[in-house]
């Protein structure tokens, strides 16, 4: 009944998926790094005291959050070359994932900052602390505990979004298993191994995120 060949798994599937796993991890890490910075910028724009800027920023965030990542990837992939910007598919894909997740991390930062009680700001003003010291010593340490686990979850989410890049022919793990499937007409091994790879990596990174969360709680709050 079950059509599974171990020799095919070990000789063809694993080596090729191993190569592709590198691209998956690379895309994940780079787009997460950009999303961290992009989210910060979007958050600052949204918190801006100048109303039009904060209005536009929050509507942009809303639009990015309200549309599918896959369509955004296609949008960048097809529209950028038409306006004269030709980038490799991997770069375009990383850009799309980073922009999409910036909108999500912006909300995380905002929620973290707003979780700091107002009295802390007032106390910092009363003690005549400089803005730098207020942020560095008072505000940021207190807003980290809610931010870190949420950002960690987005790292895992980005990792699981990278298969979307296979739609624009980036050679990550899902693309590699699609290629193996169409070359040998055997999808079973490649797709199953890809699924197991994602499952194992997500469980491991979920454990790491929990560890980071505990570390932040212990080292900053106590």
């Amino acid at each position: 009944m079950m059509d599974w060949r171990w020799d095919f798994t070990f000789d063809v599937v694993l080596p090729r998926l191993w190569e592709a796993a590198g691209i998956t991890v690379y895309a994940t890490v780079v787009s997460f790094a950009f999303a961290l910075v992009g989210g910060l910028i979007l958050m600052l724009l949204k918190m801006s005291a100048f109303k039009p800027i904060s209005f536009v920023a929050s509507e942009v965030i809303e639009f990015i959050r309200g549309t599918p990542l896959l369509v955004q990837i296609f949008f960048l992939f097809f529209v950028l070359p038409q306006v004269g910007i030709t980038l490799p598919p991997l770069t375009t894909g990383i850009m799309a994932i980073a922009i999409y997740n910036s909108a999500l991390t912006a909300e995380v930062y905002r929620a973290g900052l707003q979780a700091v009680p107002r009295g802390q700001w007032e106390a910092a003003v009363a003690l005549n602390l400089s803005p730098y010291r207020t942020f560095r010593k008072i505000i940021i340490p207190q807003s980290l505990p809610p931010i870190v686990p949420a950002l960690g979850n987005y790292l895992i989410a980005i990792f699981k979004e990278t298969p979307l890049l296979s739609f624009v022919a980036v050679g990550e793990i899902m693309h590699a298993s699609k290629l193996i499937g169409s070359e040998y007409y055997r999808f079973n091994e490649a797709v199953t191994i890809a699924g197991i790879f994602f499952l194992v990596m997500s469980l491991v990174s979920a454990a790491l995120v929990r560890a980071a969360e505990n570390y932040v709680k212990r080292s900053i709050l106590h």
Partner: peptide, 9 residues
């Protein structure tokens, strides 16, 4: 833990 696209495939 698995990616939706992998599951669909």
């Amino acid at each position: 833990g698995t990616s939706l696209l992998v599951i669909l495939f």
